[in-house]
Design a protein around this nucleic acid. Structure first.
Length: 992
RNA sequence: GCCCGGGUGGUGGAAUGGUAGACACGAGGGACUUAAAAUCCCUUGGUCCGUAAGGACCGUGCGGGUUCAAGUCCCGCCCCGGGCACCA
């Protein structure tokens, strides 16, 4: 028998050939080239996990790759690198379990990632690959840390400056007033003012302690999110609902010495900078919420010779203050507790401190508090104001104390009600018996100079009065906290700090990189010290080195700069490279990084800018968040409970089925929705439960679902029963399996869209898709699925459409018998294109496609450009067009989307150079000009018929022609139309 | 509770205020074939009328409004996704 060769599109050989060719020729290698405009496209750094990629991961990479390739065709010099954020918890957890060094696991995982990425045909310049765990890389992460340590934020100049300048200032002027206000981190012990002479008299230790209050990377006693299960502290963005984001372990508030980053100094600039960024509104809003700016006033309530400072957004309600509340952790609680109240207060504080974050958040409705026994003076009325302690006041926000206005704040109101404290109405018309009036569109009614004023005016007036009395001032407060920077973990960048007399000192730059030491175990020491404490000789010149390591976000906060000059041994990147590549023009990644990475990397960029290392202060002008690709799970319903309906007292007749023989009963979804479900199930049970047979006892059932691998499901949502039973029997033990199937040995499953995950058996591996359909099909299909920002389920069934499209595209070049009803391509698989001049119809298809695809790429609407390609191929197929002048530009246009097939066709068309070097074909509008338009003729907005008129025809002529039309006349029934609207090249609407 | 998104056929989705459902999947029918694969053609939002050709009405979460014309703009709700949340 003769083997029939179906000589058509063979993705396997094509893709292997071109991936090799690109590697060998260095097609995507990029160098700085001042003769060309630059374009920087970056994907968010992946963490190389052991699980490898699933089809959801490359979605953003494909989109950015299309843009990168498109920009190259348009003449841009494109920087499009990739690397790995290779420090991180999973490798370390794995190391703890297996003893395998995290560096090794990371290496293996990165190699696997690379292999998978290569198979998809990305245009990454791999010569620029960076890894955060590479000492040559983290040398510069450590270097930036040292710069942060050696910098302070000058609120007058509104920028970071070298710490030496602060020391100079102290020596000349001391520290007074405004300088002391940079401390916005946690509740800080107020730093007293000092003179130049006092500074000069300070001991080394005192000076260093003072400077810690100013350094942008600093060590302090701070409230941290301690996660006992992970054995480390977490940054705020790593905690969600009181548990760790990774793993969901409980988190506690704990006070401990802690390296922090003074990101709060940049709060306002991080907020303002958002305005000019081309990011989605939701992303900007997330950052704005996280920064949480609120305007108000700080007010000092005198207590004896000291005072309590509070922050309020409503100084206009000052006359409604009936008590003050301190957070349990507030440093002044002890000081103001009277002897009589001491026992009660201390036990309350103790209890409040021991409650985890999660408990406190979960029990929002529980009102607790205790009176300290002391009173403060109202700054205006001089009335005695009782001082309470309550855990509804957060230690970490504002000053950790509030002035309670139960008439104007619902939380204060509830606290007052609960403890029987007085409630004064602050606004006109408020029903303070029922609730507080928090409205800002109100008139102040409390006695005093604010009476009768509108809220906004009263706020301004109150601040003026406070400032006059020096009892307070207008103030802006942020929710943003300083970021915890140290991790009690092994697999991260060592912090380049050593201790002399317990004072932290920076390592000299010449000592960098401070390489991660070898340890015997990746666990904390017996004394609870971090793993680095296990390292031998972990000291500098005999002084102990810091043992915590940097968090995951350190390395990723500046990596976009390293790609510009990845092998530079002298600097993190040369000024020339930075000046050339500048900001990221397009940054693509997940929206889950809104309040973590994306904030930190803006922060570091602003800092590096302040210190003169960058000519820009925002890292990414445009940001696009790709949606998640969800998995479609297949769920087989099974009976999780059988019971005898209670009303019928036949339990005794029937007895209970022996558990040991009770079968697992799986029921096809189709059967559940079909008829006679109960009867069929009963029949199954009767076989195992003889007494049931002749009984009238009625059974009721409860269903649960069991995940089945989506790979086994066909396009009709059914699976093979034989295979299903076989796969289940291993886990069900001796108990039998019964299946109520659809017949034909098939069983219908229920589909559910969920997150793609191993445990849900709905993971689709790109390698499998590529083996079957090819990378080009995968790329096209991922784009075709829908808008890039949207989350959507992966359904492998739909991929046939894009695969078919590529074959049709291929066949346009390979048929000598175009359009004979057999598009299988010619047998020799030799390109067969005609050099004839294309006709008008063919040119119209081409230019319409060039136009649409270009516009769609510019607005990142890739699903619609894929549609346009399909339309083009369908139409050219119908026109039997195989003309070079039409097909060649299409190859270039398709190249960003499906680079392998494009390269292959390009070379078959006789080009020696890569298609990536071809200029982008620009559409010519003259081929899109129509000379007539088929007008939809509508009556009262409803389309009734179509009439074709020349484009050149005037509105009046069209109107006349339309009204003269017999069909239109018939519809008007002789009555004159009220109005006729003619929109040229759009529509005619007749109002009757 | 507050702040952002979003809701369109069986499915993924398309539509500068101007013919709703492009393109694709799935489904149904047909051609080719011994058969299958592959390929090609037709139908495919709903309801109704008609033997048919064809036609009518309804339809973009719900209720109003603006407009000659609304998926698109405005107001009020409902639902889904995301962010923030005892934040003073």
């Amino acid at each position: 028998m003769r083997v029939i060769r179906t000589m058509s599109y063979d993705h396997r050989s094509i893709e292997a050939r071109w991936q090799n060719a690109w590697r060998e020729r260095g097609t995507y290698r990029t160098t700085e080239d001042p003769s060309k405009p630059k374009y920087y496209v970056l994907d968010m750094f992946p963490y190389p996990s052991g699980a490898g990629l699933h089809v959801g991961h490359p979605l953003g990479y494909i989109a950015s790759d299309i843009v990168a390739r498109y920009k190259r065709h348009c003449g841009f010099n494109v920087l499009h690198p990739m690397g790995y954020d290779s420090f991180g918890l999973p490798a370390e957890q794995y190391a703890i379990q297996t003893g395998q060094h995290p560096a090794k696991t990371t290496e293996v995982n990165a190699a696997r990632y690379r292999e998978q990425l290569d198979r998809i045909g990305f245009s990454f310049d791999w010569d620029r690959e960076v890894r955060t765990s590479d000492p040559a890389y983290y040398k510069w992460t450590q270097w930036i840390f040292l710069q942060l340590f050696n910098s302070w934020y000058d609120t007058r100049a509104n920028k970071a400056r070298p710490i030496e300048e602060l020391i100079d200032r102290f020596e000349a002027e001391g520290c007074q007033g405004q300088d002391a206000e940079v401390l916005t981190g946690d509740i800080e012990e107020p730093l007293g003012a000092f003179t130049a002479d006092e500074w000069k008299g300070f001991s080394e230790r005192t000076r260093q302690m003072v400077l810690q209050h100013f350094r942008l990377a600093y060590l302090s006693e701070a409230w941290v999110n301690w996660c006992p299960a992970l054995g480390t502290v977490l940054a705020n963005d790593e905690v969600k609902d009181g548990v760790s984001e990774r793993g969901g372990h409980p988190v506690e508030r704990k006070r401990m010495p802690q390296w922090s980053m003074r990101i709060t100094a940049y709060a306002q600039r991080l907020l303002d900078g958002l305005d000019d960024l081309d990011w989605s509104t939701s992303m900007k809003e997330a950052q704005r919420n996280w920064i949480g700016r609120s305007e108000g006033a700080s007010v000092r309530f005198p207590v004896g010779d000291d005072f309590i400072e509070v922050f309020t957004t409503r100084p206009d309600t000052l006359f409604g203050v009936t008590f003050l509340t301190l957070a349990p952790e507030h440093v002044l609680v002890g000081k103001y507790t009277t002897e009589g109240q001491r026992a009660e207060v201390e036990s309350y504080v103790q209890e409040a401190k021991n409650r985890s974050e999660r408990e406190r958040q979960a029990e929002v409705d529980r009102i607790t508090g205790v009176f300290t026994g002391s009173f403060a003076k109202h700054p205006f009325t001089e009335a005695d104001i009782p001082i309470w302690v309550g855990d509804y006041v957060l230690a970490g926000y504002g000053t950790g104390a509030v002035m309670a206005v139960p008439g104007g704040d619902q939380r204060d109101w509830r606290f007052a009600k609960h403890f029987g404290l007085p409630i004064i109405a602050v606004t006109e018309g408020a029903d303070i018996e029922k609730e507080a009036d928090e409205s800002k569109e109100a008139t102040i009614c409390s006695e005093g100079f604010l009476k009768g004023m509108q809220v906004p005016d009263a706020i301004r007036r109150a601040i003026q009065e406070l400032e006059k009395l020096e009892a307070g001032e207008g103030r802006i407060n942020y929710r943003l906290r300083d970021a915890a920077f140290g991790r009690q973990r092994y697999w991260g960048e060592p912090i380049p700090i050593y201790y002399r007399d317990d004072i932290p000192y920076p390592l000299p730059e010449s000592e960098l990189p401070l390489v991660l030491p070898e340890v015997d175990k990746f666990l904390p020491t017996e004394d609870g010290e971090p793993p680095l404490a296990r390292a031998k000789d972990w000291n500098y010149d005999g002084y102990p080195l810091e043992t915590t390591t940097m968090p995951g976000w350190a390395g990723s906060s500046w990596y976009f700069l390293r790609y510009m000059d990845p092998h530079n041994a002298e600097r993190f990147a040369s000024p020339e490279a930075i000046a050339y590549w500048k900001q990221i023009d397009l940054y693509v990644g997940g929206s889950e990084h809104a309040t973590g990475h994306l904030l930190y990397f803006r922060f570091w960029t602003k800092f590096l800018h302040d210190r003169g290392w960058l000519p820009f202060d925002e890292p990414a002008r445009k940001l696009v968040n790709q949606g998640m690709i969800q998995g479609v799970s297949a769920i087989v319903p099974f009976i999780s409970r059988v019971s005898i309906e209670e009303k019928l007292d036949s339990v005794e007749d029937v007895g209970w089925m022996e558990t040991s023989v009770a079968p697992f009963v799986y029921v096809s979804e189709a059967v559940i929705h079909g008829g006679e479900l109960d009867a069929r199930i009963r029949t199954v049970y009767e076989a195992y439960w003889p007494k049931l047979k002749n009984s009238s006892a009625r059974l009721s059932f409860q269903f649960s679902g069991s995940h089945e691998s989506i790979e086994n499901v066909d396009s009709r949502n059914t699976i093979d029963v034989g295979g299903f039973i076989k796969s289940r029997s291993s886990s069900t033990g001796a108990r039998p399996i019964e299946v109520l199937d659809d017949g034909d040995n098939r069983l219908t499953v229920r589909r559910e869209v969920e997150k793609m995950s191993k445990s849900k058996l709905n993971v689709v591996n790109p390698d499998d898709i590529i083996a079957r359909y090819g990378a080009d099909t995968l790329r096209l299909y991922e784009m075709f699925l829908g808008p890039i920002e949207q989350s959507k389920p992966w359904d492998t069934n739909g991929i046939e459409g894009t695969y078919r499209f590529l074959r049709k595209f291929w066949n346009l070049f390979h048929q000598d018998n175009v359009g004979n009803g057999n598009n299988a391509g010619n047998e020799d698989n030799v390109v067969h294109v005609s050099d004839e001049e294309p006709n008008r119809a063919e040119l119209k298809v081409l230019h319409a496609t060039l136009k649409k695809v270009q516009e769609d790429i510019e607005r990142m609407s890739f699903n619609t450009s894929v549609s346009q390609f399909m339309i083009a191929v369908n139409e050219l197929g119908a026109l039997k067009c195989n003309k070079r002048a039409v097909l060649e530009p299409l190859v270039v246009t398709l190249a960003p989307f499906a680079p392998h097939i494009a390269e292959e066709l390009w070379s078959r068309l006789g080009h020696a150079e890569s298609v990536t070097a071809a200029p982008w074909p620009v559409h010519d509008p003259q081929y899109l000009v129509e000379d007539s338009f088929s007008y939809p003729i509508s009556f009262n907005g409803k389309t009734r018929l179509q009439l074709e008129f020349p484009i050149a025809l005037s509105k009046e002529d069209i109107e006349a022609a339309v009204l003269a039309n017999p069909e239109v006349q018939k519809r008007l029934e002789g009555k004159p139309p009220k109005k006729v609207i003619v929109v040229p090249k759009r529509i005619v609407n007749i109002v009757v």
